[in-house]
C-alpha cells in the first residue's frame, strides 16, 4: 500500500522536473539577439569583429540552425545524460562547473537548515510555554526581526561586526582556504530568516496542541510540566513544523545566492551570478536547471518522509 503511494508521488514529480528543464531552456532562448553571439560571450557591439564563417560554425555546433523544437529535444536529451554544454568563458564543461559548486552549496544549506531548525524550534517552544510573559515577547520580537531582516544586508552587517570590529572569522573565501570557519558567517546570515519562520510556526503549533484535552489529562495525572511540554505536546506539535522546515529549501537557496556572492563562496549561487555577469548563457541555464531540479527533488523527499512520519496523509 505504502509502496504504491510512494511510487505515485515519485511518478508525479516527473512532469515537474521536465517542466523545470523546459523553463531553463526557454530562459536561455529568451535573450534578444543572436544566441550564437551570446553563447560566444560577445556583446552586440562585438558583432562586426566576428568572422561570418566563425558565426556559422558556432551556430551549427550549437544546433541553432535547426527548428527550435528540435533544439529543445536535443538539449533535453543531452541534459538527461548530464551534458549541459560548454562554458564559453572558461571553456570547461558546464556539468563539471555545477558538480564542483554543488558540495559547497549543499553543505551551506545543510548547516543552515539544521541550525535554523534547532534555534527556531527552541525559540518557538519558549514562546509557547511562557505565553504572554516576558519570554514570549522577547522570542516573538526576535522572530519578527528575523523574518524582516534582508539576508544580504544582514550578511554585510555580520561581516562588519565579526570580520572588522571583532576580527575572529574569515570574511570571504572557500573551505579550502579557511577550513570550516569559512562557513560560519554565511550560515548565520542565511539561517536567521528560516529560524524566525520556524519559531513562529512552532509557537502556533505548540499553542494549539497545549489547548487540547490530552495535555490536560497528562497534567491531571500528575506528570511534571517539563514532561508534558517536551514529550506529550512537542511530539504532537512538531509535524507541521517539519513540513515547514522541509519546504524552506527554495527560500534558503534564494538567500544562498546573494550570500555566496558576498562571501565569495564557490557554490551554485556564485556560479549563477558569474554566469549572468559574464553573459555565459549555458552556465546560467545549467545553474537554474540544477537549482530547480534540486528543489523538486527536495519537495519529493519531504513529501515521502511526511507520509512515513504521519500515516494520516497516506491517501
Amino acid at each position: 500500500m505504502l509502496t504504491t503511494v510512494l511510487l505515485r508521488r515519485l511518478f508525479l514529480s516527473i512532469p515537474t522536473i521536465l517542466g523545470v528543464a523546459t523553463l531553463a531552456f526557454v530562459l536561455g532562448h529568451l535573450s534578444p539577439g543572436d544566441p550564437a553571439i551570446a553563447a560566444m560571450g560577445l556583446d552586440l557591439e562585438g558583432h562586426s569583429s566576428v568572422e561570418p564563417g566563425e558565426l556559422e560554425r558556432v551556430r551549427t555546433e550549437l544546433g541553432l540552425d535547426k527548428p527550435i523544437i528540435v533544439q529543445y529535444f536535443q538539449w533535453l536529451g543531452k541534459a538527461l545524460q548530464g551534458d549541459l554544454g560548454r562554458s564559453f568563458v572558461s571553456t570547461s564543461e558546464v556539468s563539471d562547473l555545477v558538480f564542483d559548486a554543488l558540495p559547497t552549496t549543499m553543505l551551506l544549506l545543510l548547516m543552515t537548515m539544521s541550525s535554523a531548525a534547532v534555534i527556531g524550534i527552541a525559540l518557538g517552544i519558549i514562546s509557547a510555554v511562557y505565553r504572554g510573559r516576558a519570554g514570549d515577547y522577547i522570542a516573538r520580537m526576535i522572530a519578527i526581526i528575523g523574518v524582516s531582516t534582508p539576508t544580504f544586508w544582514f550578511a554585510i552587517i555580520l561581516i562588519l561586526l565579526f570580520a572588522f570590529l571583532i576580527p575572529i572569522l574569515p570574511v570571504t573565501g572557500s573551505i579550502d582556504e579557511h577550513g570550516f570557519s569559512a562557513m560560519i558567517l554565511p550560515t548565520a546570515a542565511i539561517a536567521l530568516h528560516p529560524a524566525a519562520l520556524i519559531a513562529r510556526m512552532m509557537r502556533s503549533s505548540m499553542l494549539e496542541v497545549l489547548s487540547q484535552d490530552m495535555v490536560r489529562t497528562a497534567t491531571a495525572k500528575g506528570l511534571s510540566r517539563w514532561r508534558v511540554f517536551m514529550v506529550h505536546a512537542l511530539r504532537n506539535a512538531i509535524n507541521p513544523v517539519i513540513t515547514v522546515i522541509g519546504f524552506q529549501f527554495a527560500n534558503l537557496m534564494g538567500g544562498a545566492v546573494a550570500v555566496e556572492f558576498i562571501f565569495s563562496l564557490p557554490g551554485l549561487g556564485s556560479l549563477l551570478i558569474e554566469g549572468i555577469y559574464e553573459k555565459d548563457i549555458l552556465v546560467m541555464q545549467g545553474a537554474v536547471l540544477v537549482i530547480g531540479v534540486a528543489f523538486a527533488l527536495s519537495n519529493l523527499v519531504v513529501d515521502l518522509l511526511y507520509m512515513v512520519i504521519d500515516p494520516r496523509i497516506r491517501i
Binding site: V20, A250, M284, N299
Partner: peptide, 17 residues
Amino acid sequence: IFMSIPGIVMALALVSV
C-alpha cells in the same frame, strides 16, 4: 513548476536575458 525555482533565481535569470 514556476514555484520550483526560487524567486530571486528566476528574477535574476529573466532580467539577465
